[in-house]
Structures are given as C-alpha cells and as structure tokens.
Design a protein around this nucleic acid. Sequence first.
DNA 1: TCTGCTAGTGAGCAGTTGGTCAACAATTAT
DNA 2: ATAATTGTTGACCAACTGCTCACTAGCAGA
Lengths: 230, 230
Amino acid sequence: MAAPEQISTENQNSLRDAASKKQEPKPKRRMRLPPYERENMILEGATRFFAKHGFNGNLRELASELNVSQALIFKYFDSRERLVEKVYERTFLGRWRLDWEQILSNETLDIYTKLKKFYLSYLETVDDYIWIRIALLSGLTGNNLTSQYIVRNVGGLMNIIALEIRRANSQDLDGPITTLEMEGVWMLHSTFIYYLIRKHIYKTPVEMDLGIYVNKTVDRFLSGTLHKEA
Amino acid sequence: MAAPEQISTENQNSLRDAASKKQEPKPKRRMRLPPYERENMILEGATRFFAKHGFNGNLRELASELNVSQALIFKYFDSRERLVEKVYERTFLGRWRLDWEQILSNETLDIYTKLKKFYLSYLETVDDYIWIRIALLSGLTGNNLTSQYIVRNVGGLMNIIALEIRRANSQDLDGPITTLEMEGVWMLHSTFIYYLIRKHIYKTPVEMDLGIYVNKTVDRFLSGTLHKEA
DNA sequence: TCTGCTAGTGAGCAGTTGGTCAACAATTAT
DNA sequence: ATAATTGTTGACCAACTGCTCACTAGCAGA
C-alpha cells in the first residue's frame, strides 16, 4: 500500500503521464442537454442505480455513473427523497397495464387461456431485474404510498381471478370471497413473483422459456400437480 | 383519540412527574454483564434492529435502543460488517431444522401428509417478521455467503420433494429432474414464502390459521384448484 | 461574431457516521 | 476495606453525505 520512496524522474513523469492519460483524454466536454432530456437521463440512471445499491446509495457515485456533477442532480430533484419518489412512479405506475383487468374479465375466454394470457403479459412487463428489486426494496423501506397503491391494484386483479375461478367451478358468485379462496388465488401469483426473485435476486437457475413456463404453471395450478389416474 | 383539554393542576403535576420519572429516575446505573450475555443481548438487538432499518441502520440508534454506549458494540464486534455476518448466522443457520429432510424422505407417509407436516414445521420456524425481512434484505444486499447457503439448502429440500412427487405419480425415479419439474415444486414453496411477504412486509390481510392454511394449500397444490367434476 | 440565457460545475458547509482510546466504575478476590 | 480486573463510557477523529451557491461555459438568436 505504501508508495515507493524513490522513483527516477523519468518514471515519475511517465507515471504521471499514464495517470493523466487515463483521466484527461476525456477532456470531458461539458454536455448541455434540454432539461427534459437531462431529467429523464438522471431518472433512468437513478432507477438503475437504486435498484442495484438500495435507496440510500451514494449520490456522488450515481452522479459519476451519469458523467454529471452531483450538484446537477439537485437542480432537477429537490432532494433525495423526491428523486426516490419519482423512481417509484416511473417503475410501478409507468408499467401498469390497463388491459390486464379486461383480459381477466373477458367473458369469451375460458379460465385456462384467460390466466395464461394475463400472466404472460404480466411477466413481460415485470420480468426485469430493476422491477423486482425496486418492488422488494420499496416494500422493505416501507413508508411509501406507491407500493401500497400497487398492492391494492394487484389485490383488485386477484379478486377478479377469484370470481373467475368460482365461475369455472360453477359456484355461486354472490357471497363474499373468503380468505381461503383468496389464498388460493395468491398461490398462482406467488409462484410467478417468487420465480422473479429466484431469477433476478438469488440468481438460481430457472425455466427460461416464459411461454412454456406460464402455460405449464397455470395448468398445474388449475388441475393439480398429481396426475389423477383412474 | 384527542386528550381532554382541561386537566387539574394536580393532574398536570402528576403527569409531569410521571414523565420525569420515566426519563430521569433512570440515573442510568451502569450495568455490568458477563461478556457472553452482553454479546447475546447486542446480537439479538441488532437482529431486530437490522430487520427493521436495514443493514446500514445507524449504530448509535441501535446502541441507544440497547441502553448501551455505541462504543460497546465495537468491543464485541470488530466492525459493522462482522456484526451483520453474525446476524445472518443467528437468523438462518440457527433456525435450520435437520429433521425437515427426514420428514420429506419418510417412506411411511403419503405425499399429502408429508408435505403438510413439513410445511407446518417450516412455517412455524419461519413465520416471523424478523426472519422474512432479514431473508429479503440479505438477498438484496447480495455478497453474503449465508443467503446462498440457505438457497442451496432449500434447493436440496425441493429436490427431495420433486422425487416424492414422481413417486406419487408412479414415474421413473431415475432420470434427472427437469427444470419444469423443479418449477412445479417451487410453486408450493413460493406460495408459502409470498404468504410471509404479504403478512409481514406488505401487511395485507391473510389467513391466520396456519394449520388450515397449510392443509388447504397442499391439497390445492396436489389436486388443483378446479373441482374436477365427472 | 457577439451577447444573453441558463445548463452545468467546483468548492465548501454543516451534520452524520464508523471506529478508537484513555479514563471510569462495577464486580470479584483478597 | 482495599486492590485488581475488566466491562463500559464520553469524547474525539477522519471520512463521508446531502445539499447550496457563486461562478463557468455551451448554445441560440441577433
């Protein structure tokens, strides 16, 4: 760790040159962007960065990843807190698809294809390192309205599925949905969420063909994993 | 909810007394504990604390929760990093039950009761605010061997279950287990893990009777959620 | 080419944080 | 009682962090 005490002048020079060659050749011409673009660039970088380092990641580090001064971040976002809020919005609200509800309520589809269509679309927008990490981080950090908003929204979809399952079982649709019925629906959803956790967070091997995986999982969910024989 | 606006002087005094009694009458006599006990106390407090505030929670705050100086923490743990490691060990390794593997391999039980027995025991040791939060936090922070160790261990159990399902389906036990077979097994496990996430992290309403919940979930997993009629 | 507007920055401030250390005091042995 | 041992602490340090501000420089319009 200690620097050598004696170096020849030439060495010193060449070392300095090498060093300066590594930091200078980027004369780092100051790039001027229209505010909207710059804001977007920062927000996108922050999303990636927070996903990786958590919401109290070092802002100076974020700035240097963006090749921008740390002061600039505060020109576009009043405080770290505001920046984090924006990241939430971008990540969650920005990805919510309004047609999910329609797929699930579509009367012309049977329950198998309905669930397969929905979860294929759901996974397409959500099977992403950034999304799953931000989702878990925001849940753990708590105190954020956005994650609660999502919980409620997903809860709404789960309710629809519960009703569709009743319909498929030709049960009475009127009574209130029981806790155990809801747990049944969450079973399917849990499977897909934990698939994302294993894939993007624990990085264990998983089935990579989403089409096959979704089909098989929905089938299993509805029909059971035991071959009913005879 | 609102406090009464008028209180007699006596009341005010007694209130003030009560308040001061709460912070002053602790002349904070210095408590001396045998090292083993103190270490345990700090470790337990740190586990609770990190579970709540994440692994870069403020150590001064932790110290004050323990009614102990911040310097003392460093007498028992060289650095924050070491402390976090110990928290991992305590939380994960300390809870692993060796008999889980035996329950699952037990030849005298049918697959239904096997899975029910196992997951009841599993949830009993793992259905806990602290456990699920530390588990997710450690996964997100990455770079920890312990969480990978657990992933491997759980993976081992999943493998056993995969084999048991083959047996129940009277399939050939010899071929290698396919990715899709494994995904099937993860479906059940995912359900229980995400149950914990909903319960302890998102704090949404869930079925509270573990016995009923485990039974019903295993049944659904094996037999499907659709009533197969005629 | 020059000028005005404003995107962008370096330097620095106040507060915080992990970690250290000499001194203090609770307990035990004498 | 007294002394030796050692668990415990207050005060401190150096590094870091969110955030600010006076100043710099890229770009559009004249």
